[in-house]
Simulated scan of single mutants.
Amino acid sequence: MILCVGLATVDLVYRVERVPGVDEKAQARSAEVAAGGPALNAAITAAALGAPVTLVTAIGAHPLGDLIRKDLEAHAVRLVDAAHGSEELPPVSTVIVADGTGERTIVSRNAGDRSFPVPEEGLPEAELTLVDGHHPGLAVAAARAARRLVVDAGTWRPVFADILPHADVVACSAAFRSPAALTAPDVIVTHGPGPVLWTRGGRTDRIEVPPVEAADTAGAGDAFHGALAFSLHAGQPVRDAITEAIRVAGVRVRHPGPRSWLNEL
């Protein structure tokens, strides 16, 4: 089983001709409401590829949380809700996608200052754990208990100082900036459409990314991490897992919308 621990959001997704500037208004060509968040998107990707997946996150009892729960149920992802009973609004993001380029702009609150303890029943056991650093208390507990830990290190957060020492694989973007050097056995750095850099034992290899026509880049990194976790869980060598993650992320960016691309895997 794969355990994903981190952020789940409600995403309001607008497609526009171009992203508006300051004091400008834009008429959206389409609008969708969907569940999102790095850990959630990765969990749904891994489940769509065929792995049993459990997501530990914080949603709560607010009516908007039902949208997240239904999306997870529809994609066969088991949910452990650390915010069970909370009436607070779940994390909400606004995602603006530009037609033509597929580039996205995101405004989000993420988890804010909310903090939730590990559920009384503890965390499920898993062969592989993926954490994104959101909900720090849950993330650190999951990292310490993980048999094999993959870290989605998209943006530096202080909690990573407690997570990274436990990591077997760290996958970060080129924009990631850590106060300390990354010392995990395998470090993967993505560069959007550019080559992925994989470092092991002091040696760095470049893995090329095939060019694709982008329709929607929102969640591409999450899809990459979900596919990476799936392949590592299936026993693939790291380089092969990276290649598969690149393929899956490429499928994601070629299709507009949050979920339709899963049918092409």
Rank of each mutant, 00 (worst) to 15 (best):
A174T: 11
A58D: 03
A46P: 00
N110W: 15
H225L: 06
P91Y: 08
P210V: 07
L265F: 02
A47D: 01
F224C: 02
A47K: 01
V77C: 08
A171M: 04
D23L: 14
H135M: 11
I59M: 01
E24M: 12
P20F: 13
L3R: 03
G65E: 03
A167M: 08
D66N: 13
A26T: 07
V97Q: 11
G201L: 08
G85W: 13
P20C: 11
V209Q: 06
S173F: 10
L182C: 14
S108I: 03
L262H: 08
A39K: 06
E121L: 09
L67M: 12
L64N: 02
D81C: 09
L232F: 00
D113N: 11
A180C: 14
H233L: 00
G85D: 07
A241Q: 03
L89W: 02
A35D: 03
R252P: 01
I163D: 10
A35V: 07
I246C: 05
P91G: 07
P258E: 10
V19R: 14
A241M: 04
D66F: 05
E213R: 15
D216I: 03
V169E: 02
T54I: 01
G201P: 06
N110F: 15
A111M: 11
E103H: 13
M1R: 01
R259C: 00
S86Q: 13
G226N: 06
A74F: 10
